[in-house]
Every structure is written in structure tokens, then in C-alpha cells.
Amino acid sequence: MAKVPVQFTLNGSEKAEFIESGTTLLNALRDKIGDTSPKGGCHQGTCGACSVIIDGELRLSCLTLAETCNGADIKTTAGLAEGGVLHPLQRAFLDAFATQCGFCTPGMIMAAKVLLDRTPNPSREDVVEALSGNICRCTGYEPIIQAVLVAARANSQNAA
């Protein structure tokens, strides 16, 4: 099978790989590049565990072919912590017990991040809408919604 080159920015650093044509971004990230923060829950677009941010937009890496990401700016949950300090969303997820098995967490955090980047003070409805493509089988969602609202408040206090 012919290999094709892909090159993109992942969490601020340049990545270049040869991959098999037709490889999903999820498989390229996990198996080639070694970023296992996006999870493969369904490979069907249904669970949201593989969510990543591509050029500022939330996308499902399981339904995105890696070759279509040449030159893109990709962000995953693995890139959020800075110098060992957790991102406010990660902190809030821990504090609010919004993570149980943790499988949905990276996708939830990506979906929440694009929301807070655009809507720093979201309503509860905004949060529910933003997370509506992400499934959690453990928490019952309420702690996750609360964590995002807490992170939003922490953000706006920092800004004030």
C-alpha cells in the first residue's frame, strides 16, 4: 500500500509522518504519532470520544482522513496542560468529579474548549448544546455540565 506524507501542527509542534492512504486522523494520532488522548469509542461519529480541534473547529478524528489535514492546526487534550499545570477545564473536571472511567473526558474537554473559546460565559443550555455530540456512560452528565460552568467562571474571574 502506497504511503503518503502528512504534515500538520499538533499542539503547537510540527509533525510529519508517512501514513497509509485512507488512514483516519484518529488512527494516525494514536498509532503513528503517539498522542493517545483522542479515544476511539465507536469509529462511527456517534460517541464524540475522538473529538479534536482542527483550525479552531470541533471535529471527529475518527471520520476525518489524516491526509485531509495537511497544513492544519490540530489541538488535542494532551496539549492543554502547560508546564505541568492543568488547564482550567481539566482542573474543573477533576474537582467536580466529572471524570469516572475517563474514556469520554478528552472529547468532552475538546467540545467544552471550543465553546469557552467562543462563549466565555455560556448558559447551561449553551453547555448542553456544545456537549450534545459526546456520550458519557458513567457520570450522568450533570457533573460534566457543572465542571464546564465552573471552568467558565474561573476564566472570567481571571480575566476580570
Binding site: 461519529g45 470541533l58 471535529r59 471520520l63 467540545a111 471550543v114 448544546e129
Partner: peptide, 9 residues
């Protein structure tokens, strides 16, 4: 159509 990520695609 779908959730936020699906709508972006």
C-alpha cells in the same frame, strides 16, 4: 443535523 462536530463536517 447531528451535534456540533458533525455540523462542522
Amino acid at each position: 443535523v447531528g451535534g456540533p462536530a458533525i455540523r462542522n463536517m
